[in-house]
Design a protein around this nucleic acid. Sequence first.
DNA 1: ATTCATTTTTGAGTTTTATCAAAAGTAAAT
DNA 2: ATTTACTTTTGATAAAACTCAAAAATGAAT
Lengths: 193, 193
Amino acid sequence: MMLDEILQGITQNISPLSAVTLADVKRLAKIREVPKNEILVREGDYSYELYYVVKGGARAYYLKDGKTISDWFAFENDFISSIVSFFLEVPSQHYIETLEDTTFMVLQLKDIEFLCDKYHDFERLGRLSTTKTMLQLQQRIVSLQFKTSKERYDSLLEKYPKIELRAPLGDIASYLGITQETLSRLRSRKNRI
Amino acid sequence: MMLDEILQGITQNISPLSAVTLADVKRLAKIREVPKNEILVREGDYSYELYYVVKGGARAYYLKDGKTISDWFAFENDFISSIVSFFLEVPSQHYIETLEDTTFMVLQLKDIEFLCDKYHDFERLGRLSTTKTMLQLQQRIVSLQFKTSKERYDSLLEKYPKIELRAPLGDIASYLGITQETLSRLRSRKNRI
DNA sequence: ATTCATTTTTGAGTTTTATCAAAAGTAAAT
DNA sequence: ATTTACTTTTGATAAAACTCAAAAATGAAT
């Protein structure tokens, strides 16, 4: 069954779960198919769902001065949520939108809390996957803090080699903290070398 | 006793611990007094210690092209570690240095692992404090991504109102992703208004 | 194939910030 | 009080990126 493989992938990457815990997770986790360009979370929503990308891709973005600023990309095997809303239970400042037809595994906050309460090994999985995300954010800060935009673009391409084909230019540019014009010029300069 | 108050503060802010767990934490946590401008972790070190600032302040920084780039400030009630080295057990790219005479509470990685294994409530505390740090990093990314340097300086001042008196200009500037000359001009422009 | 809407690229001018250099200010030590 | 070392400010110039505008390219729909 599909959920089995997905959970096996997650636990192998992060931390194992007992058969009992796994059975309970399988009972609570849901698969959701979402078409391209669909918005899962809107600004102002309370978002109680954590998404794991099984196939496809999505992005989180927010609005600043009427402009769309991408904050996070998630492709196969990545988690995505409206992170602040989900963990602090406040209205979302982010939108979450699919970039392609996407299959998610979805977990509800209340179920995650239930699982964390009931199973020490699930709490461990939660701690370690949070740690992993924290380290990714840390890398991103180093990147934004003092790398040139070209260096930042190169590291993004290293993480997501074909992202140019999966996300529009403007989304990628705002993720890098630059305008799309600048990214376009960067790209053409790069290709000439 | 001092450790009691410290731990009470932490658990009140994040997640409670049973008396049994607390007793074990108290046995393992150590208080360390460190004079100003002392380096606790150097580039290349393996850093197995997590620091909690009881009194004083410290910063984490790394070197890029011979320049010092501040990455994280910690004052009273903040945690600090060479985050990547600590969690991935790889050599540190960061230095950690006190900004003032500082009292830390120190926990060893092996002790944290032991406590997480043994006590579900400690694992919970670990998960939630990691979550908290993750959300702080997330805010910092939003800040670096598309706020002006003045906006970034203002949010830093909001978090640490008197930081100008506790950390040198250059350290603050690099934390904000700008040169110290720019911060100096920013500051004088600000004061004139 | 043609149209229409959207995305990407290119151009010109402006603003912001970096760089390099020097001057001014601050603090500790003799 | 004076020296010394260090930090902060100021100035001039250069580089990077932004803004606004328009042209070119792409892709979906008829």
